[in-house]
Amino acid sequence: MGKGMEHRAGSVMVVGGGIAGVQAALDLTELGYYVYLVEKAAVVGGVMAQLDKTFPTNDCSL
């Protein structure tokens, strides 16, 4: 990504790269849009990446 103004028609910005942000970004690309996923941490994944297993099925869901 270069400096300065980026211009892409029909793009969407998603702020926050947790499970909700990542899912929204994936769905948007499938729906035909360019997505900027903006995350304040160094990795995406959010809190869900800290979880061992998830309810109600107690699997890892990764």
Binding site: G4, M5, E6, H7, R8, A9, G10, S11, V12, M13, V14, V15, G16, G18, A20, G21, A24, L28, Y33, Y36, G46, V47
Partner: peptide, 12 residues
């Protein structure tokens, strides 16, 4: 600076 059409806020 980015040009976007819509914004989704999902900061957790």
């Amino acid at each position: 600076e980015l040009n976007v059409g819509a914004v989704i806020l999902s900061p957790g």
